[in-house]
Design a protein around this nucleic acid. Sequence first.
DNA 1: TTCGATTTAATCGTGTGCGATCTAATTACC
DNA 2: GGTAATTAGATCGCACACGATTAAATCGAA
Lengths: 136, 136
Amino acid sequence: MLCFALHSAAHAMHAAYAPLLEPLGLTYPQYLALSALAARGDQTVSELGADLRLESNTLTPLLKRMEAAGWLSRRRDDRDERQVRLSLTDEGRALAERAAGVPRAFGEKTGLDLAEITDLRDILSALRDRLKPARG
Amino acid sequence: MLCFALHSAAHAMHAAYAPLLEPLGLTYPQYLALSALAARGDQTVSELGADLRLESNTLTPLLKRMEAAGWLSRRRDDRDERQVRLSLTDEGRALAERAAGVPRAFGEKTGLDLAEITDLRDILSALRDRLKPARG
DNA sequence: TTCGATTTAATCGTGTGCGATCTAATTACC
DNA sequence: GGTAATTAGATCGCACACGATTAAATCGAA
């Protein structure tokens, strides 16, 4: 069953990430949001959601917790007040830098070499996009 | 980033399964539990947890919902009353049969051929076991 | 220009997941 | 045989994740 292999591998990946993120005070989805904002700069909630494949009903409470932690600010856009613009605080950017080493530490845990990691990543990304195109 | 590819592929897999399971009234974890019990026969909560890589704090409420739906029974073992034995009802077995076709329908959605599916499944299972050995 | 359609977040309810803790039952050891 | 250690589930609190709905802002067509 491919489905269970995929499910349980993602599960194990989560478990492997947890001890790496726990010292930073981050959950895995928070880490993804922080990294996306650090990589792409300020974004709206929907833009971030398109990147992470998450809806506002998931992101809103997650982002509020990150705002309460002092890592980002949420402000209504002046031009279009329906949109909420997200920007990392200095503290958030500093945390993102500290978190930048985490994927390398995870890569070592996998026991795969760089080529294997790249191949697997591409296969999974293609599978994801076939199952669920971004913004669709 | 392998981690995001894995995370988002599992996410997309979930989304692809949902419309297949919804007519049966099953969530994805419930489908896994039902399939495991149908395949392996009666099990205790910990045995099922070892298969699915889940703890009792996750399984107990899930199994109670499935018991309330009439798909399985939970009974303390006579020999060792710490253990709870799970067995599918007739209704549960019938549902498991109806659900047996779901992986095939999912396989078609992936657009992969059988060899690709098998390869990917083995790679992911091996990765999972390296990250998090069963029962350990 | 105005009123309906669309877009964007937020809110609510349900269902996982897990760490920490609890209770009850069983086993191990002196 | 009695007490400590272990084991099996259950409970609690927190954090996602999503479907459905709501509210507000904006857009568009008659």
